[in-house]
Design a protein around this nucleic acid. Sequence first.
RNA 1: AGUUCGAUGGUGUAACGGUAGCAUCACAGACUCUGACUCUGUUUGUCUAGGUUCGAAUCCUAGUCGAACUACCA
Length: 555
Amino acid sequence: MSEEKSLNFLEEIIENDLAEGKNNGRVHTRFPPEPNGYLHIGHATSICLNFGLAKKYNGKCNLRFDDTNPVTEETEYVESIKEDIKWLGFQWDNEFYASDYFDKLFAFAVTLIKKGLAYVDDSTAEEIAATKGSTVTPGIESPYRNRSIEENLRLFEEMRAGKYKDGEKTLRARIDMTHPNLLMRDPLMYRIKNEHHHRTGDKWCIYPMYDFAHGQSDSIEEITHSICTLEFIHHRPLYNWFIEQLGIFPSHQYEFARRNLTYTVMSKRKLLQLVNENHVSGWNDPRMPTISGMRRRGYPAEALRQFSDTIGIAKRENIVDIGLLEFCVREHLNKTSNRVMVVLDPVKLVITNYPEAQEDIFEAENNPEDPNGGTRKVPFSRELWIEREDFMENPPKKFFRLGPGNLVRLKSAYIVKCEGCKKDEQGNVTEVHCSYIPESKSGHDTSGLNVKGTIHWVSVPHAKTAEVRMYDRLFKVEDPSNEEGNFKDYINPDSMHVLPAVYIEPELAKAIAGERVQFMRKGYFCVDTESTPDKLIFNRTVTLKDAWAKEQKKG
RNA sequence: AGUUCGAUGGUGUAACGGUAGCAUCACAGACUCUGACUCUGUUUGUCUAGGUUCGAAUCCUAGUCGAACUACCA
């Protein structure tokens, strides 16, 4: 019996609408990005919401690019957005562009002019701002507000025909300059931009403002539930006003609070800065909170969807702990990724009683969480690489790894007993010496020994190498946008640490780009897109939880 | 200051007048050929003050705190 999961507030609205027979039981949502940047994890939430709701209620979801500003928009962004949505596991029912509606929007504008509800204004941007008023003072009506319908019609046609320069004239809605909602004080509908548009080319030199395009675009597509973030709540009365005056399909807008994440920034403006100023390698840098960055980092789409589902949706301010995202990533990766042995910070282990010419080939389980995960062959010899941190000459009480006299299991191989180490003049350990117990062979252990610690290793003569990029949080503080000064002052200088040549078990050399594995006891890693068979590159997706590190911190 | 929205453990989210629940985090323990995973247990919360009611996180009033709005951006 499955637990009845409680509905979020949008699902409640939809179920009420359905119960009342609104829109003939139709549910139609849309995801409306502006193609001026790459999608980030916040968009992922919105995508999961819009596509998820459509799916849940047997409805449809459009992808619509809100491309009303030719200056900032590019085809590159359109392509990346489509790729990200598909990768997340969603397919849109229709692909539309606000620019598809430029003719209709122009006609809407003409309709409003004819109703005396829009006028051409010759005021400059500064004049319009100055007469806007404020939250406590009313605005002042433009001297051009009462032009005749005929004159407005003529001037608007002239605007379209290219008779005027950028900024010389605008088309404004004629609403109420004393309205408490600043957006209702004769908002701009059209502005002149003699710019080439990524889709309409040079057909237009006037472009509708977002506010004059968005609501009507939803209406044209007969979107039943227009879901957006909270900051558009003040725009809703304006969208409704346009829809009512035009007498077109009444889409209804609902707002939710955007999700913020700790240790990162989410605004496109800030992300663009990180890219342009080379704080990161690009929009898909694995440290970026973009969908493409997370994909490259190795975050599975399932984890992003799970995360979106877990954090839910509401209308209150929030900042979600990035640990929650990392939990979702680990949870999925734990079930799906193969285990391999990689030594990141090596020191040599010599098994003094193991013959020099000898080697063993062990059969190691790929994934203990997956019964069908299969096995792989791992070669073993007298000399192995192990992690430097897995040996201590004077270990503390709860240290379960190698120290003089200690017994430790070499994963998938033998139990060894530590006999000491070799050091250089500076006192650095150069070799750890052990003896192995032949009866303790993995899978055929008759030694009767029970050891507390297990460590990973790579056979020295068989080892291959790879570059590993150890990623950490991009920022040092939880909420960089809310700190004193510039958010860039809080960039974590150690957000990427490159290990040029770590030792990997030979089987791993076959890994291909995008492949995700668990480096045993170290974390989840993913083969980077820049990786080649000659030069393997791994990105650290996320660490494993580390109870020992925590124990040490306690001191 | 005005308008609008909001306030439940550290974080996120439920409870729709009737036992404050879930996830994560933290802590303790069990298990372990990954100090992972898994399992068990524990701590921590209704912004404040009044009111209505047998009963209030929920309804009412007042206050407090937070956010958004004053781009020819979206």
